[in-house]
Amino acid sequence: MTDAPAITVTGLTKRYGGRAVVDHFDLQVPRGAIYGFLGPNGSGKTTTIRMMCGLLTPDAGKGSCLGFDILTEQARIKERVGYMTQKFSLYEDLTIRENLDFIARMFGVRDRRNRVRAALDDLGLADRATQYAGTLSGGWKQRLALAACMIHDPELLLLDEPTAGVDPKARRDFWDEIRKLSARGVTVLVSTHYMDEAIQCDFIAYIAYGKKLISGVAREIPEMIGLYTYRVTGNDISALEARLRQEEAVAQVARFGAVLHVSGTDKAALDALAARYGKDGSHRWERKEAELEEAFIYLMGGAADNFAGAAS
């Protein structure tokens, strides 16, 4: 049972007005995994997730979700999946309790009353249960939506930017909860723009302009890209940054406060460059492991070029 992947899709394609916003997308999500789904705005994450749970019909491609065909067995999939939309889409003119209760009824949840009360307690909203959902703050709306999509104990969670606008404490709680669910065998596919969330995932897929650029075990991603990085500290970082950008060997310079991360794909050339710049002693050059963050900034730059090439 745990051997079969929770999600398998191949060649998934969706076109809007002739433009392929998701283009031959392949993905395998193992059961019980936390799978991070990353990509810049408009890259097709939401569209892909919608196709996986039967909310959109793909123009091409096929796949299965929890063993059910995404093209013909959407009804079965929906019963077992918890989908949290990117935009808040519960009823603003219903109260918090009414919303949870309605969703629970849609899924035919057993012992509904207690389940809803438990969800309210977990949320810490028990004393505000009769407040209209529309009057909640942005972060609280997200948390309510999350509670709603988990009320029927789904086997698979599809979460579209669940923590957008959520404060750090609540985000930590959220990820604790996700890990607990994952340990119990629930599969989680979560899209996010936050790097600190990406590193919490077991697997990561990166999509840009509708095409999947890379996917695999999270910590292997930088290595897969083949990125080497130096950490540079010292005086007058800004001037150095400008000069480094002109260098052939440097694929990317990312600035974090007073620190520069200088990356390139050609190890020998980068080492030579580090030796040359390090000589004058005004900056400290240290080798470091390339991290996901650099990897993704690098990917984003590359994807733009790809797309420009494809468009011309």
């Binding site: 909310l55 009804a75 939309t85 889409s89 849609m106 709603a148």
Partner: peptide
Amino acid sequence: ERGTMETLIATPVR
């Protein structure tokens, strides 16, 4: 228009 349709049809409702 309000987007609640997305939540509604993501449930098993016919």
